[in-house]
Design a protein around this nucleic acid. Structure first.
Length: 260
DNA sequence: ATGTCCTTAAGATAAGGA
């Protein structure tokens, strides 16, 4: 089962790029972030005619997450638990049946947090505490689980072309990286780094200043696997080349193959 | 070189978010 995460940066603007990639990559599941659409306005038809089931958790103007799946999605839950006053659409989860076993899928769009310090950074750190709590609960279940999405965290210096440029940024501040590491250290496997220590591998390049042409990127889109899921992983790759196409997202897909 | 892009609110451009 091929499972991908992709921050598409607006479904209305990205429909041609996303459908072209779907037709080529043929993922079974895609966890999408930044759909920037309310549920009612999400264009379901292009995906349904390709055989995907569509579950969205949108909001007006920004944020918004979705799951596309060729297999039926069950037990869909929207919103990260832990704060009923949080109205930002950043979390969706569902269960998909593999050939041999069920997998719990969590799609997340972690807050950017800039400028730091400030209320937006406080919100990011509080959101990460809630994520840690949900991660603990997932580990206690027997089902293999994947938490994938735009984490807005650069885990290590080797995950940025110019780490010095991010020293004061919410994506790379020690507190952000420590919170990410606390979640990993519960027992999760970060899929990409479990398979390679190659430098220069990124998932985001800014639209500005010819960042793509210079490979001035950062790796902030991650897939965290519970031990039961990590045992099933046979592949993890970044489809970087689509960043160079017409009207691309500033992020590219990251995907795993699970023998589930 | 904060050099771009996407969104909404308007009804042309400007602001917020990233």
């Amino acid at each position: 089962m091929k499972i991908a995460t992709f921050n598409i940066n607006g479904i209305k603007a990205r429909l041609p790029a996303v459908t072209q990639w779907l037709d080529e990559a043929q993922p079974d599941v895609v966890l999408c972030q930044e759909i920037k659409s309310v549920d009612e306005a999400f264009p379901r038809e292009p995906f349904e005619e390709r055989g995907y089931n569509v579950e969205t958790h949108g909001q007006k103007g920004f944020n918004g997450v979705a799951i596309l799946s060729k297999r039926p999605l069950e037990d869909v839950c929207r919103g990260l638990p832990g704060d009923d006053s949080d109205e930002q659409a950043r979390w969706i989860e569902a269960t998909v049946m593999g050939d041999s076993q069920a997998v719990r899928l969590c799609g997340l769009y972690l807050p950017n947090g800039n400028p730091a310090p400030g209320p937006k950074y406080d919100y990011k750190l509080a959101w990460m505490e809630r994520l840690e709590a949900r991660a603990r609960a997932l580990l206690e279940e027997e089902m293999p689980a994947v938490m994938a999405g735009d984490y807005n965290v650069i885990p290590q210096a080797e995950d940025a072309e110019r780490p010095e440029a991010w020293a004061e940024d919410a994506l790379f501040l020690p507190q952000s990286r420590a919170a990410f590491r606390r979640i990993l250290n519960l027992g999760f496997t970060e899929a990409f780094r479990a398979r390679t220590d190659a430098p220069g591998q990124y998932s985001f390049w800014d639209y500005q200043a010819r960042a793509w042409e210079r490979n001035n990127g950062i790796r902030i889109d991650h897939m965290l696997l519970t031990p039961a899921a990590a045992d099933l992983m046979t592949e993890c790759r970044i489809d970087a080349e689509i960043r160079g196409r017409e009207k691309p997202s500033d992020h590219v897909p990251v995907w795993i193959e699970l023998a589930a």
